[in-house]
Structure formats: C-alpha cells, structure tokens
Amino acid sequence: MNSENIKNLNSLLESEYIAIDSFESLINHASNINIKTELQNIQRTHKQHTLQISTKIQNLGGSPSCSIGIQGVIAETISNIKHIGTTDNTSYLKEALQGEFMAIKTINELLANNSVFSNSTILNSIIADHKTNIDSLNNIINVSNNIK
C-alpha cells in the first residue's frame, strides 16, 4: 500500500516542480513589478508544497522525486512548442491557471480514492493554496488585460 501512496505522492511532487519551472518563466517575462511579485508569491507556495510532499514521502519510507520527471519534460516541450512566437503572457497565465485547476482535481482524486489520505492536513492545505493561486492568477490576468 505504501508503494502506491509513494508513487502517487511522487507524481504530485513532480507536478509541483513543473509549476515552479513554469512560474520561473512567467516571472522572468513579467514587466510589471506588482505582477512579478504576485507570481513570486505563487511560486513560493509551490516550493513549500515540494517540501511538504517530500517529507510525507520520506515518512512513508520512500524516496522523493527530485525533478519534473519524463511526463513533465513532455508537458514542457508541448507548452514551448505551443507558445513559439507568442509575446503575450496571458496565454501562459491561462495555462498556469489550468495547471492549478488540474492540481486540485488530482489531489481530490487522491483524497477520494485512498483512505490513508482522506484526512490529510497537508493535501487539504495544498488544495487551499491552489485555490488562492487561482484567485491570484485571475487577478493578474485581469490586470494584464487592463494594462494593454
């Protein structure tokens, strides 16, 4: 049972690494200091998630992933191809927004399908953070659209 839990948590961990990388790119392209600061705050939550999830994996006797994994490499490559020639950050922001929704969906499935995690304070806290990130990203998108 622990090996399946560790596998699921490592998959979640890898998605957090993908988010960190994605936000790094957004931060580097943000010209507005307020938007840059908010993106840094969101990225910081993802970094905190990696620590929390890594600790949980270790407590279960597993070894946490240290990178985005092969699925992450594929996802990043597809994203990069999709955005070739794009100078508008709104499409990247919307993609990040989708990533937050997907993370909530993945964690909710994990909670629903595994009694070990059903009352997980860590996972429920991460969901709350993703919801806050969604609000922040929606605000950034609205501000970005008004700046144009």
Rank of each mutant, 00 (worst) to 15 (best):
residue 5 N to D: 14
residue 6 I to K: 01
residue 9 L to M: 09
residue 9 L to G: 00
residue 10 N to I: 01
residue 11 S to E: 14
residue 12 L to T: 13
residue 12 L to C: 04
residue 13 L to D: 02
residue 15 S to G: 11
residue 18 I to N: 10
residue 20 I to Y: 03
residue 21 D to I: 04
residue 21 D to Y: 01
residue 21 D to N: 11
residue 22 S to D: 10
residue 22 S to T: 10
residue 24 E to K: 10
residue 24 E to W: 04
residue 24 E to H: 04
residue 27 I to C: 02
residue 28 N to Y: 07
residue 31 S to K: 11
residue 31 S to I: 06
residue 32 N to A: 02
residue 34 N to A: 08
residue 36 K to A: 09
residue 40 Q to P: 04
residue 41 N to H: 10
residue 42 I to G: 04
residue 43 Q to S: 10
residue 43 Q to H: 05
residue 45 T to E: 12
residue 45 T to F: 03
residue 45 T to G: 01
residue 45 T to A: 10
residue 46 H to C: 08
residue 48 Q to E: 14
residue 51 L to N: 13
residue 52 Q to A: 13
residue 52 Q to L: 15
residue 53 I to G: 05
residue 54 S to M: 00
residue 56 K to I: 11
residue 57 I to M: 03
residue 57 I to T: 07
residue 59 N to T: 05
residue 60 L to M: 02
residue 61 G to W: 06
residue 62 G to C: 00
residue 63 S to M: 14
residue 65 S to N: 02
residue 65 S to L: 03
residue 66 C to T: 15
residue 67 S to Y: 06
residue 69 G to A: 01
residue 70 I to M: 10
residue 74 I to N: 03
residue 74 I to S: 05
residue 75 A to F: 05
residue 75 A to G: 03
residue 79 S to T: 12
residue 81 I to E: 06
residue 81 I to R: 06
residue 82 K to R: 15
residue 83 H to A: 07
residue 84 I to D: 00
residue 84 I to A: 07
residue 85 G to S: 08
residue 87 T to W: 00
residue 87 T to L: 07
residue 91 S to P: 01
residue 92 Y to P: 01
residue 95 E to C: 09
residue 95 E to T: 15
residue 96 A to N: 05
residue 96 A to I: 00
residue 98 Q to Y: 07
residue 99 G to M: 03
residue 99 G to W: 07
residue 100 E to F: 06
residue 102 M to N: 15
residue 104 I to V: 15
residue 105 K to A: 11
residue 108 N to S: 13
residue 109 E to C: 09
residue 110 L to V: 06
residue 110 L to R: 01
residue 111 L to T: 05
residue 112 A to W: 02
residue 112 A to Y: 02
residue 113 N to P: 04
residue 114 N to P: 01
residue 115 S to Y: 04
residue 115 S to V: 06
residue 116 V to L: 13
residue 116 V to S: 12
residue 118 S to M: 12
residue 119 N to F: 08
residue 122 I to A: 02
residue 125 S to R: 12
residue 126 I to C: 11
residue 127 I to V: 15
residue 128 A to K: 15
residue 129 D to V: 11
residue 132 T to Q: 14
residue 132 T to K: 14
residue 132 T to Y: 11
residue 132 T to L: 12
residue 133 N to I: 03
residue 137 L to T: 04
residue 137 L to I: 15
residue 139 N to W: 03
residue 139 N to A: 11
residue 141 I to M: 02
residue 142 N to M: 12
residue 142 N to E: 14
residue 142 N to H: 12
residue 142 N to K: 15
residue 143 V to W: 10
residue 143 V to H: 08
residue 145 N to R: 08
residue 145 N to V: 04
residue 145 N to S: 09
residue 145 N to A: 11
residue 147 I to Q: 12
residue 147 I to P: 00
residue 147 I to D: 02
